[in-house]
Amino acid sequence: MPALPPGLLPQGHPVLDTEDRGTKSSLGAVSLVRCGPRRADLASLVVSMRSPRGAIEILVSRSPAPLGDLREALPERAFGLVAPRGNPGRPIEPGPLAERAVRAEERAHAEGAERVTRTPTVASPEGAGEYQLRLGDGCHRVQIMAAVPSTFPHRATDVDAEARDDAGRTLARDRSEAADARLDFCLGEATRVTVPYAGAAGMVPVIATDAVWPIPRAIPNHWGARTRAGFAYALRRRNAPEPTTAPVFESLGVAGPTMVPITLEPGRCYLAAVAVARGESRGLRLAATVGDRYMRDEVVDRPEGAALAFCAESEELARIDVEARGSGVWWTFALFALGGGEP
């Protein structure tokens, strides 16, 4: 192995090929044993961790004979034989409807929902139905839960649903294999929302819960309801800090790659967000280059908005790149100043 250059970054290093020469870990540990003259192989080692963060401990031991299997030293990490996957059987019954509805409400309140409302109905004999909801502006989590029949045999409960606005635009869709359907979306203004569902176990009681989170006041509304909703959804999806002041910079753009140069205050943190204002978006990417740091957020599934946060250290400039794909897409970019640096 060649001498390691100072400041070595193993991943992608032109001299060291960690992919080919590396020994991969098992049980969260890796052991290299060399005996006799081959001990010289261990003169220099490069340890590369694939996990984003963690702590590692390095142990070096010399012994007259190999120390044995690592599993003997770390028995708690040995997982034994891997069983064949087999048939998991029927889906687990989700439990009583009332309890599930209460759990959904409690979870929403714990996450800071402003209010939660319930709307009961009964599914058709085919286990399907449709809600017509008049929803106010804000970010919504609509959950559709169906009761499980007490008689046997009965169909499995796997409710799928989608939410559409007046114009027929899909706001959210759930086709997962969970018993309840969950639809997360944001509305920039009061909207009539249609929620068709299917997958209940016949003509059973169904409850729709709607948990609402308010849109941060700093999100501008002068670009229209869809943009406001797009910003709100992007921030919520990234669990981003809520901006408290109006954007310090805004820009508009269209489909294709667009570079937006922005000026920064050293020491201040920023939240950058882009939201679709018009058109059928098929992908949205937002990237920020601040000095030698690069941040990115890419949305492919319902790409209505993207967001990322970054801080300026000594930099006074940053490069924002917005790439929107789709048909007739117009977007709005906003930069919010956060916290530090405010007098």
Binding site: H222, L252, M259, A277
Partner: peptide, 13 residues
């Protein structure tokens, strides 16, 4: 064809 508004510039690269 791009939208323009006095509040913010529209950008094209």
């Amino acid at each position: 064809a791009v939208p323009v508004a006095p509040r913010a510039a529209t950008r094209l690269t």
